[in-house]
Nucleic acid binder design. Structure first.
Lengths: 238, 238
DNA sequence: TCAAAAGTGTTCGGGATACACCCATGT
DNA sequence: ACATGGGTGTATCCCGAACACTTTTGA
């Protein structure tokens, strides 16, 4: 038995295409949302998909994900974007083997109802009710939801989904929506106030926006405290 | 501005090669280990790499990982194997774009010092001291170590690395080695006994193997209890 | 005899959980 | 008036962490 037979190292075949999809998470004050777009190419032209593109041989994965993201939502100073994993079902494309390397991104969802968006058909959906998507994109969304669940438990990613100012009610909605369970309001507050991650802005929301019925106090995220935590390897556990 | 310009969906190019590497974790009773092999192909012929192969257009990812794994360590009834993520640095291969989709696997390390292994040059290394590997395989190992750390905290994966019978000292060594920290022996035992995951075998190891100096009690893994936990979504937190 | 690992209980503190009532506002 | 969400404090329990001595055996 030669080495070549027994240990199957072999030569590469350059016959696969690479695509990259984004699971873009947003938050409307009530629940977690995911962004879709109608496909403008065959196959599945017109069907809903995740924002996606095919990569060229020189395209770095994370860089391409960033560019795709920024092409859609514009430049943001702090973007959270992370690879999920490779999805390589052999059935994915009729012409040949396509490997998709989806990433997820978190976006502070402020005023994205521009003309460009409606023109392209971009649309938010409740993460609990994502419609049928083409390819294996529903599987990708499910995987992304599991990932975000785990991330949210460990790091205060939630803040990347909220605007600069937010109420504790919104923050709690976000956690409940991402983790799929309810928290006691008093305990939730206690927990947050025991960290140094929250700054009281001493002002009140007018109660008009985002599913509130009443004004409430506004807070912002303490990014210095957060950065300190990042260095030391914190524990933030929901 | 047309759709094609503003939203960059495009056509695929089938010009990428796919490879798959395995980070195979073993445990020798003292510390966590990783398996390497000398490369038998250019580039980097002779350099140490992770066990790897190039995929054909029809090869499913996970299936190929299993086959590669079984080709090396033989069939096992319970294998733990999971994709890490895609590694797509454009520099990875001189001939063209290669995407590697490494997986990690856990193996109960029993008697793998066969002729085939030494012939191929397979070798275990302490996870803390993995030598320089070709390509980006060190980066992959580091990533796998992070993953295993997280997994070990949440699920009793450790058991997949131990033989049928083990001592609590070995189990503790495994956790300490995987997580990179020490535990108090009494607290560690308490924690384990409070679960139902451990069965007392009422017998003693002779103390001769695997870095022991003294005989100690043997235990085995309670797989029924484990399966029940899996269904209900357990908490197992180190 | 010395070094190294196995075995064994108790105490303390902090964090998670459970729980109820009043207030403000918009419908 | 009523429904919806905002705001607030206390008691309990469990788990994690800290901590020391004796025994066995091989070197």
């Amino acid at each position: 038995m030669t080495k070549e037979e027994s240990y199957p190292q072999n030569e590469p075949e350059f016959n696969t295409a690479l695509s990259l999809s984004l699971v873009i998470f947003g938050f409307n004050g009530i629940e977690l949302q995911v962004l879709t777009v109608p496909s403008s190419f065959s196959p599945f032209k017109g069907a809903l998909i995740l924002p996606s593109r095919y990569l060229r041989a020189k395209d770095e994965l994370l860089l391409s994900a960033r560019k795709l993201f920024e092409g859609l939502v514009g430049e943001q100073n702090e973007i959270t974007i992370e690879q999920l994993r490779a999805f390589g079902g052999v059935y994915r494309h009729p012409t040949g083997r396509v490997i998709n390397v989806p990433h997820y991104a978190l976006v502070k969802k402020v005023d994205f109802n521009h003309g460009k968006w409606s023109e392209l058909g971009l649309k938010w959906h409740s993460a609990k009710m994502v419609p049928d998507l083409a390819y294996d994109h529903n599987e990708i969304v499910d995987y992304a939801l599991e990932r975000i669940k785990r991330r949210v438990k460990r790091r205060p990613v939630g803040f990347h989904l909220l605007g600069e100012e937010f109420t504790l009610g919104q923050l709690q909605n976000l956690y409940e929506s991402a983790l799929g369970k309810k928290f006691d309001r008093r305990n939730f507050r206690k927990k947050l106030f025991n960290t140094t991650l929250i700054i009281d802005l001493e002002s009140e929301s007018d109660g008009r926006e985002n599913g509130q019925k009443k004004g409430s106090k506004l807070y912002k995220f303490n990014s210095e405290a957060y950065n300190k935590m990042k260095i030391q390897g914190y524990d933030f556990l929901f």
